[in-house]
Amino acid sequence: MLSALRSLSSGVIVLLSALPAAAHHSFAEFDLTQTIEVHGVVEEVWFNNPHIHYYLSATAEDGSQVSWDIYGSAPNNLVRQGWTRDSVKAGDVVTMVGNPAKQGVPRISLVKVIFADGRTLQRE
């Protein structure tokens, strides 16, 4: 499955495991034993309940563009951590770190955002 994910984006790197904070729906769809990085350009910010999403365009190994669904936490939990609708903007070049979906689709459960200037946003 991970090799399939690697082939989806040349920017995907396998990292160590991290577990999410309490959430209000199942995280069974994500492989929490693996963490990957996806590097690309934010296409769209979707900062709504029940969970936020960033849609990220990344370049695959064959040069094609792959749209990743970056699946975040609940907005209210993030807002209480100082993470707002404007923390990540469309057009930002970022690296998204998270747990990959088990189905091998381009979707991750977001753990951390790394901006081009090195700043980070980390989920509690």
Partner: peptide
């Protein structure tokens, strides 16, 4: 199928029991 059937993913109340321990105020 949790990926497709969970009510809160569609913004539906999951019910008294499931919501009892939800991580919200």
């Amino acid at each position: 199928n949790p990926d497709l059937d969970q009510p809160p993913m569609r913004c539906m109340l999951p019910g008294l029991v499931a919501q009892f321990g939800y991580p919200y105020f």
